[in-house]
Each structure stands twice: as structure tokens, then as C-alpha cells.
Design a protein around this nucleic acid. Structure first.
Length: 499
RNA sequence: GCCCCCAUCGUCUAGAGGCCUAGGACGCCACCCUUUCAAGGUGGAGAUCAGGGGUUCGAAUCCCCUUGGGGGUACCA
């Protein structure tokens, strides 16, 4: 059996974390079994769909490395695959044909009920404590009745008959599921009054046309699956296998939502999460390898993943864990690649200073390459690079006098310390400006004076960087250069002794 | 309301009847390392496996009930 699965996002919002996870699992499943991974754009909600959202979704999936074997034309990439078009609004003919077929077979019928009719029904059902459902007013109209009702409402919808009985199916992660058609809410609308098709209908027509073998999607679709099965049968199609993934949850265990969590993939990208970490984290939300290994690359997942190890319970999206994974993966990214990925974040960070009027030097790839050894272990996210080294790119650093004084020291000791340090570094720097030598000399100074090295170093650190948490001090001095090091030490001394 | 699904440390999870006085990871705490911050190392706290009934010589694992949670119930997807 050829495995064909798909991700079918709707461009009515930016790429959602949940969509990305579903795409990942589909992609992994296809790769694992030598199948085909298809992308289909479900853009039939014309009112809410936009090209920007479509762009965001496609870019995000691509950024994650989730490339599809078949899919629509995007940008300069042409359509791929023999089952297109892969954009639903370009498949209207197929839906029209299928709807007409269902109408001819009397598996569907035209419904002339108005929004008001339906609202009245709904209200009555609610009052009578009945589940909301379509009452079937138009289910059995004869030709004459249809003609009359059409006079009042010339734009009927098309409803699909759900019939009676139970629908049973085997879900690859849930096991056997059984739902009575009476719980489906009555005959469902498959074509709007404006002639455009609705989701439950298009999904079945397309999965059939695209020969989808496995439908892997979020659990929120579990209750809708019987409708789809009924539709597949009516269409005379093979029913694909289903696998409903556990939901990704907010911390309060409700379905992950924009209101309570950060759901847009783009936001994570902006904050410096790397694709390796996002993939790893998403994979672990609802799937486990069964080993004690926690770090998985996409390729490893491709070899290990299978549906039989997918969970049934929902999983809270844990940022702390993502952060940890992100740090782990950042430490594993090859130098040149990390340089390339981190540079934009540094640039942005420096630009923020520039925007406040500070004179800055724009960071270059060479800068990041030089700084890599001292920042790599300190980056839970790529955007952390700014606060870590941005002081290197400021022409002038203004440091508050009170901040310069270490906890155990007073202002005059600090002034003495910085003055002495300036003298030593200045003298040493003319000969050689190397971390080891500077450190040895300054430690010697501390011994002489009875100072704790940590105190002196802290005073220098603040003088040079304006921060109390920085990369190792002596590497920082080298990165800053002799001239600027001395200059900042002088500025700090001036701040401590304005007179 | 009705239907469906789910239920192991705070979180992600291992566990497919005896290997479990329940393992790992994140987070948390302590110590070590250490010029700060990280990273790393070591150790610790943390789950009577939602509760109650069965089945069995034996149940976190199988069955039933209860409770709790979630999802679905559109001319959204």
C-alpha cells in the first residue's frame, strides 16, 4: 500500500503551533514509510483567508524543514504532484461535480431554510433541552414544493443526508470509536447558498481525489470523522485510515489558543528559537521514543517515529522545556551556520540602540564568528545574543556610578581599583594584549592589595560592559580592544570622581 | 444539554500483569566547578499511578462504575 498523507492548513490565520505539529507528524509518518507528504491549501473560507496568512504558513513550514512532495505553486516554485490543483478554490469544479452526483443519488438535497428558520429551530431545541440539530424540513420535498420554496429563496444550500445507525471506525491512535449518526446534528450543509463548498465536504472530495491513505490530524476532528466516513461512502470512495493526535494544551489544559499561549510559529522564530529545537519539542508533544534519549534530530525522528507510540492524552506546551531544548540545539549547530543564524538577532539588537540615538557600529559576520566561543553556551535563544555582547558595538558607554561599585566595596576603593587596573592593563597592552597575561597581572594586583579578585573583576566588568552578567571578562577585553578598554576604564573613573 | 475522547511527579513522559519500595527529562533545591552569567558535574525533594469496585496467586498495566478534564456539536477549518 502506498502511503499518502497530507497537511491541509487553512490560510485564515498565521501558522499555528498545532498545525506545525500535525504537519510534522504527517511528514514523519510519510518519510518513515517511504510515502508521500502532500500540502493542500484549504482556502474555501474566502472571507477570512488571506494571501499573507498563506505566505506565513508556507514560510513557516519551510523554515521548519517540513518540505512537501506535492503541493501548490508558491512564489517561484511551481506546482508539484499529479493530483493538483492543491488549492481548494481552484478545485471548485470537482466539488460541484461531486455535489451534483450526491444530489442525483438523493444522498443530498437542496435546503431552502433561511437563517431565521434555523435560528428559530435552534432556540426551540435549546428551550426543550434537545441537542441542536437540523430538523429536516427540506429533506423530503417533492418537485412542486421545491419550486414553491425556491420562489422565496432562490439560493438554497445543499445538505447531505446523514441517515441512521452507528458509524464505527478504527483510529490508529484511539482504537475503536463508535458514534451514532443521531449525534451528528442532522443533515449537514456541504455547499453554501453562494455555491462554495464547506470543509467537511471538500476534505472528503479532495482526500479521495488525492488518494490520501492516512488522515493524521488533531483530536478536535475526532467527532467529525463519522461525517467524513459517511461522505466517503456516499462518494463511493475508499475510507482512509485515521489517526487523531492529542491536542496541544494551554497551561490550564484547554486547547492551545492565541489568548492564553503564544501560538504563532512566527513569534517563536522571531525570538530566536531554532528549527531543530522546535521540531524536537513538537515531536515530544504526544510522542515518545520509548528510550531515555531526549534529543532528536529530524532525521532521527524520521527513522524512529511511528503512530503506535503516539499518546492519547493532551500535552501542555511547556516553554521551559522548549528553552532547554533550544539551548541544547544551539550548542550543536555548526559554527558557520550559527554565525549566519545569530547575526540578524545581533543586528536587530544593536539597531535598537541606534534608534535611541546612540552611535553604533553594525555587527558583521566576522564579529559573530569571533564572539561565538564566548556566547554559544550562554544562548537559551538566539535573541539572547544582543544583551550579551551589544556593548561591543556601542561607540560610547554611559555607566551609572552606583552600578560600578561592587557589593563589598565602596566608591573610593572602586576608584582605586579601576585606576590601578587601568595602569596595569595599559602597560601590559603595549607589549601584548592577551587574556592570560591580563588575568595574571590583575590577580597579582589583588593579592598585593588584599582584594578579592571577584570584586575587582566585577568593577571592571561593569565599567566595560555596563552589565553585571557578561561573557568571561578577559575575552571581553580582547573583543573590545585595548584602546576602548582603556577609554571605558577612564570614563568609569570619571563617573566615580567627577571632580 | 447531547455525543465522543482522555486520566502516571508541577510539566513532557517510560511503563504493554510479576523486572515498579514506579524510571528518565524539563523545572525546582543543595553542593562542586567558577571573575559575573551561563554551561557542566554530583546529589535531593517531587506520583499512595484520579477514586471505588471487580478479574487474578499477583494490577499503574485488564473490566465496570464514579469523579475530573478536554474536544465536538456553524452556510469556520
Amino acid at each position: 500500500m502506498t502511503i499518502r498523507c497530507r497537511i491541509a492548513p487553512s490560510p485564515t490565520g498565521p501558522l499555528h503551533i498545532g498545525t506545525a505539529r500535525t504537519a510534522l507528524f504527517n511528514s514523519l509518518f510519510a518519510r518513515r514509510h517511504g510515502g508521500t507528504f502532500i500540502l493542500r491549501l484549504e482556502d474555501t473560507d474566502v472571507a477570512r483567508s488571506t494571501l499573507e496568512f498563506e505566505r506565513d504558513i508556507l514560510d513557516g513550514l519551510h523554515w521548519l524543514g517540513l518540505d512537501w512532495d506535492e503541493g501548490p505553486a508558491v512564489g517561484d516554485i511551481g506546482e508539484r504532484g499529479a493530483f493538483g490543483p492543491y488549492r481548494q478554490m481552484q478545485r471548485l469544479d470537482a466539488y460541484r461535480e461531486a455535489a451534483e452526483r450526491l444530489l442525483r443519488m438523493d444522498a443530498a438535497y437542496e435546503c431552502f431554510c433561511t437563517t431565521e428558520d434555523l435560528a428559530t429551530d435552534r432556540a426551540a431545541q435549546e428551550a426543550g433541552h434537545q441537542p441542536p440539530h437540523y430538523v429536516g424540513r427540506c429533506a423530503d420535498l417533492n418537485t412542486e414544493q421545491r419550486r414553491q420554496r425556491r420562489a422565496d429563496n432562490p439560493t438554497p444550500v445543499i445538505r447531505f443526508r446523514v441517515g441512521e445507525g452507528r458509524v464505527e471506525f478504527h483510529d490508529l491512535v484511539r482504537g475503536d470509536v463508535s458514534i451514532d449518526t443521531s449525534a451528528l446534528g442532522g443533515d449537514l450543509v456541504i455547499v453554501r447558498s453562494d455555491g462554495t463548498p464547506l470543509y467537511h465536504f471538500t476534505v472528503c472530495v479532495d482526500d479521495t481525489a488525492m488518494d490520501i491513505s492516512h488522515v493524521i490530524r488533531g483530536e478536535d476532528h475526532l467527532s467529525n470523522t463519522p461525517k467524513h466516513i459517511l461522505l466517503f461512502r456516499a462518494l463511493g470512495a475508499d475510507v482512509p485510515a485515521f489517526a487523531h493526535l492529542p491536542l496541544i494544551l494551554n497551561p490550564d489544559r484547554t486547547k492551545m489558543s492565541k489568548r492564553k499561549s503564544q501560538t504563532a510559529m512566527a513569534a517563536y522564530i522571531e525570538q530566536g528559537y531554532v528549527r531543530e529545537a522546535l521540531i524536537n519539542h513538537l515531536a515530544l508533544l504526544g510522542w515518545a521514543s520509548g528510550t531515555e534519549e531526549e534529543l532528536f534530530s529530524f532525521d532521527e525522528l524520521t527513522r524512529l517515529f511511528d503512530l503506535d507510540r503516539v499518546h492519547q492524552g493532551g500535552a501542555v506546551f511547556d516553554r521551559e522545556r522548549l528553552d532547554w531544548l533550544n539551548g541544547q540545539w544551539i550548542r550543536r549547530i555548526p559554527d558557520e551556520e550559527l554565525v549566519e543564524r545569530a547575526l540578524p538577532f545581533l543586528t536587530t539588537s544593536v539597531a535598537v540602540h541606534a534608534a535611541t540615538g546612540a552611535a553604533v557600529r553594525d555587527p558583521a559576520a566576522d564579529d559573530v564568528r569571533d564572539l561565538l566561543p564566548m556566547v554559544r553556551e550562554r544562548l537559551p535563544r538566539l535573541d539572547a545574543i544582543g544583551p550579551l555582547v551589544d556593548f561591543l558595538f556601542l561607540d560610547e558607554l554611559r555607566v551609572d556610578a552606583t552600578m560600578l561599585v561592587p557589593k563589598r566595596w565602596d566608591a573610593s576603593t572602586t576608584l582605586t581599583g579601576l585606576t590601578e587596573a587601568r595602569r596595569i592593563v595599559g602597560r601590559l597592552g603595549e607589549v601584548s594584549f592577551e587574556a592570560d597575561e591580563i588575568e595574571a597581572a590583575l590577580r597579582g594586583l589583588c593579592e598585593e592589595r588584599g582584594w578579592k579578585p571577584g570584586d575587582l573583576f566585577m568593577a571592571i566588568r561593569v565599567a566595560l560592559t555596563g552589565r553585571t552578567a557578561t561573557p568571561p571578562l578577559f575575552d571581553t577585553m580582547i573583543a573590545l580592544g585595548l584602546e576602548r578598554t582603556l577609554e571605558r576604564l577612564d570614563r568609569a573613573r570619571e563617573a566615580l570622581d567627577p571632580g
